[in-house]
Design a protein around this nucleic acid. Structure first.
Length: 497
RNA sequence: GACCUCGUAGCUCAGCCGGUAGAGCAUCUGACUUUUAAUCAGGGGGUCGCGGGUUCAAAUCCCGCCGAGGUCACCA
């Protein structure tokens, strides 16, 4: 001990900690040789089990706990450890501890992983504490964690070094745990309803099921380009066509090579679900039920705080026609302006310039996005979307330019999209061709048609409803997170030089 | 891609009408010893994102680059 005290000060933290590791190894064995520690309790389970202890009351109950050293107070007399359940205080009575253990205690650093055996008591100040009788270092931290009080504030550092963020920021632990708990709850909900969870390709020959710029990669042996999927939709339908299951879903990643924003990450997760022999109204019911279920699991009710507002996910949610909403908010009736030219003219009247050559449906879509979208705060199903912007949805037989489709909006964001799936292969081909001709951005290549999918439809797809829910955005709503990056463990970042 | 803002010690931040860098936590030494962001005293630690320019002198002013956040654009 005295030799540590008199040793020349290490020029940096890394060498200081490395020296301690060497000393540890020499005197107590290399902590990195340790392969296991028989934990009997989590921090939280101890606090719960001994909740009734009075201040100053001791027990003889021996427990074994382990976690990361988060604070060392009073010369090592008090050490706080953090495990995945909670923080817990460990006590060493320095007057009555054998010298070898005191030496070991003095080699501890903020951030080390330790195991402790001891008895439980509540201190006179009321803290549940483990009086240590054995102490072992299970891993040495050669880098120090962020500062214990302010934690890691720098947003960039938080996302680049998420493990440090997790150690330093309780909110990060809560947010990510809630996100994964939400996903688990969604899965369980769907299992309970008899849905089969499936997996479909991430690597697509033709990126279909949506209109978005894909990531391109290359397969060496096949010597061909492959695309990271932008949506799983077409493959999932093919599984239903084949009769694998009449109710199936996939929760997995999609990739879109587009802008990054507080609501967009290049890779993001969706739930896509298909159920044969039902229409889009059944998808409305599932959307409301699964999200209400998640809200209850995470918050105990359908009411969820988000920023300054309280969202209420208690079903049923209002259903509003897209064109009707526009009429209510602007006075313009796009059912009256029933062709592209009239629609563009009406849009211009309310200050929205549109590209020449776009369809009636696209005008409606643009006006909706500009005038309505961000006002839909409480959960709302927007129904009756134009057929022209719904190439995979059935239109109403008696309203041929309106699709049997809805999008659910919360806090101004689209979080769900569903329709009665188009199952006529001839109609589907025509829609794809139409879509391929539609003007997009000047640099966008024409969208290729997935003939395998058309052919699959030709084998006969049952009428069915399909639903997509954006997991990340729902996660943001459920965790009061203003940025999508908060609910993604490792958001996409540009590397530092 | 455009615009605005930011980048100073391991972490959180101050300094920025130019004069050569500070605090708290962390760390080291000592004291104290039932603490709770422990306390007290004393140390060490910085290519002020990178590069260039102006100037006697640049963390500070100017330009470029890199990274980040935001707004917009983009976005089935």
């Amino acid at each position: 001990m005295s030799d540590i005290a008199s040793a020349p000060q290490a020029e940096d933290e890394l060498s200081r900690r490395t020296e301690r590791l060497e000393k540890l190894t020499a005197q107590y064995g290399n902590p990195f040789d340790v392969t296991k520690f028989d934990k009997t309790h989590s921090a939280l389970s101890i606090k719960e089990k001994f909740a009734s202890l009075a201040a100053g009351e001791k027990t003889t109950q021996v427990v074994r706990v382990a976690g990361r050293v988060m604070a060392i107070r009073n010369n090592g007399m008090f050490v706080d450890i953090l495990d995945d359940s909670d923080r817990l205080q460990v006590f060493h009575d320095l007057k009555n501890t054998e010298p070898t253990r005191i030496e070991l205690l003095k080699l501890l650093d903020f951030g080390d992983i330790i195991g402790v055996e001891g008895t439980v008591r509540r201190t006179p100040r009321g803290e549940i504490t483990v009086d240590a009788v054995k102490l072992s270092v299970l891993a040495k931290a050669l880098e120090q964690p962020p500062e214990k009080f302010h934690g890691l504030k720098d947003i960039e550092a938080r996302f680049r070094h998420r493990e440090q963020d997790l150690v330093a920021t309780p909110r990060t632990r809560e947010t990510l745990r809630a996100r994964y708990k939400m996903v688990a709850a969604m899965r369980q909900f769907l299992y309970d309803r008899g849905f089969l969870e499936v997996e479909t390709p991430m690597l697509h020959v033709i990126p279909g099921g949506a209109l978005a710029k894909p990531f391109i990669t290359h397969h060496n042996t096949l010597d061909m380009p492959l695309y990271l999927r932008i949506a799983p939709e077409l493959h999932l339908k093919r599984l239903v066509i084949g009769g694998l299951s009449e109710k199936l879903f996939e929760i997995n990643r999609c990739f879109r090579n587009e802008g990054i924003s507080p609501r967009h990450n290049p890779e993001f997760s969706t739930l896509e679900l298909y159920q044969a022999y039902v229409d889009f109204t059944a998808m409305i019911e599932i959307t409301e039920s699964v999200i209400f279920h998640v809200a209850k699991i995470l918050h105990g009710s359908g009411k969820v705080k988000f920023g300054d507002i309280e969202l209420d996910f208690t079903p049923p949610w209002p259903r509003k026609g897209m064109v009707d909403l526009i009429r209510e908010h602007t006075g313009v009736d796009f059912y009256a302006a029933n062709n592209a030219a009239k629609a563009r003219e009406q849009a211009k009247k309310i200050g929205i310039a549109t590209e020449p050559g776009i369809s009636w449906g696209q005008v409606v879509e643009v006006v909706f996005a500009e005038k309505i979208e961000d006002q839909l705060i409480q959960p709302t199903h927007v129904i009756d979307l134009p057929k022209e912007i719904s190439p995979l949805a059935k239109a109403w037989p008696d309203r041929p330019h309106v699709a049997q489709r809805f999008e659910t909006y919360v806090n101004g964001w689209e979080i769900a999209n569903a329709f009665s799936e188009l199952n006529d292969p001839r109609e589907q081909r025509a829609r794809f061709l139409e879509q391929a001709e539609q003007k997009r951005g000047p640099d966008d290549p024409p969208h290729p048609i997935d003939e395998d999918f058309i052919k699959a439809l030709a084998f006969g797809m049952p009428p069915m409803g399909g639903l997509g829910i954006g997991i990340d955005r729902l996660g943001m709503l459920m965790t009061d997170s203003p940025s999508i990056r908060e609910v993604i463990a490792f958001p996409t970042m540009r590397p530092v030089d």
